[in-house]
């Protein structure tokens, strides 16, 4: 019995090895960083390239920038993925810097507690980190690319509350964390602003410290099913790959869902899913990364500061693909303007 379990485990190990990060890294192994040459190093979040979300969005931005600046996408970009437990994140950044890549872009807040020290060790290299504020770190060659997720989520809440027939909506978060808390806070505030007293079901798929909630499609489906059965008719997810399950549940329940990060209406896997994705809260990591690299090559980087993407800059937005929210566009635009003007203060913690 125990031996069978051991074999099973070992087999699982080998299998998961095959399944995990099939990233097609590109770039040269030789030392880059010649005069004037743009050599961009990208360190992914766990999951690596091909996650149809965060990492893919970041690399799309890098490739767009390198292309626009006349570089070679294959030769001038080096992508690295951390190992499954993320224990070698520091090595990724240092080796990119040591091999002459500049700038080095860390995708994801998981790099937040090490990137400050590493950037300080390589003052000649410019570093950027997505989703982490760096202003208190006091490192001149480090830029934070941060987003006002709560503002976009507020608009998602406005859309959901305006469209809800039952006065009952839901939110599925990936991992319990301050980052996803911003989505929840904004969404609830937006819904409450339009329809005071609206019921908002909230469910997180994994506790703090356990990132499994971003890749748990089944868990996302069960959570959303529960909400639809309880009477919710629109569910917003901020759960990465688990969102797939939320959409499935929406299709089965004949209700609607709201996507996140990219325009998920466009990337939906089936027409049935397209029909239920009412809108998506856009977080344009690609645009932020692209303009960062452009600034870098033009020598316009400030360093030591954060670059904020929000509704005002367009780095945060609500998608309109499918035309499901065209009839309430004026309401949304009205709230958008109030947020941009500072008349509405959106909370960042639930």
């Amino acid at each position: 019995m125990t031996k069978a379990a051991a074999l099973l485990l070992a087999g699982g190990l080998a299998l998961s090895a095959c399944a995990s990060d099939e990233e097609g890294s590109s770039g040269s192994g030789s030392n880059g960083g010649g005069e004037g040459d743009l050599k961009v190093g990208v360190a992914y979040d766990t999951g690596g390239r091909g996650d149809k979300s965060f990492n893919d969005s970041a690399i799309a931005g890098v490739e767009a920038a390198v292309e626009a600046l006349g570089g070679d996408v294959k030769e001038d970009i080096q992508e690295l993925s951390p190992n499954d437990d993320g224990s070698d994140r520091g090595e990724l950044l240092t080796q990119l810097a040591e091999n002459g890549f500049n700038p080095v872009i860390a995708v994801g807040f998981a790099y937040g507690d090490i990137i400050g020290d590493i950037a300080a060790d390589y003052p000649e290299t410019q570093f950027a980190i997505v989703d982490t504020s760096v202003e208190e770190m006091g490192v001149d060659n480090l830029t934070g690319l941060i987003f006002a997720e709560e503002e976009g989520s507020f608009l998602a809440g406005v859309a959901a509350a305006s469209k809800s027939a039952t006065g009952h909506i839901g939110f599925v978060g990936g991992q319990e964390s301050p980052l996803i808390g911003k989505f929840e806070a904004g969404y609830k505030a937006g819904a409450e602003a339009v329809k005071p007293g609206i019921i908002v079901d909230v469910k997180y798929l994994s506790p703090a410290g356990d990132p499994s909630g971003f890749g748990d499609s089944e868990g996302g489906k069960v959570a959303a099913q529960g909400m639809y059965q309880a009477g919710a008719d629109i569910v917003f997810h901020a759960a990465g790959g688990s969102g797939e399950g939320v959409f499935e549940a929406a299709v089965e329940a004949g209700q609607r869902a709201i996507g996140v990060d990219s325009d998920q209406y466009l990337s939906a896997t089936s027409p049935e899913q397209q029909a239920v994705i009412m809108t998506s809260m856009l977080k344009r990591v690609d645009n932020a990364v692209e303009s960062y690299i452009t600034d870098f090559s033009e020598g316009d980087l400030q360093g030591g500061t954060d670059i904020l993407s929000d509704l005002e800059t367009g780095g945060i937005d609500l998608s309109t693909s499918g035309g499901f929210i065209d009839d309430i566009q004026s309401v949304i635009d009205d709230w958008r303007q109030q947020i941009v003007d500072g008349e509405v203060e959106v909370p960042t913690t639930p």
């Binding site: 190990l13 080998a14 998961s16 090895a17 095959c18 995990s20 990060d21 099939e22 990233e23 097609g24 890294s25 590109s26 770039g27 192994g29 080096q78 992508e79 690295l80 993925s81 190992n83 499954d84 080796q95 091999n99």
Partner: peptide, 12 residues
């Protein structure tokens, strides 16, 4: 990964 070989080779 610098040599264009996926790191999952190690896990395999």
């Amino acid at each position: 990964q610098f040599a264009d070989i996926p790191a999952s080779v190690v896990t395999i």
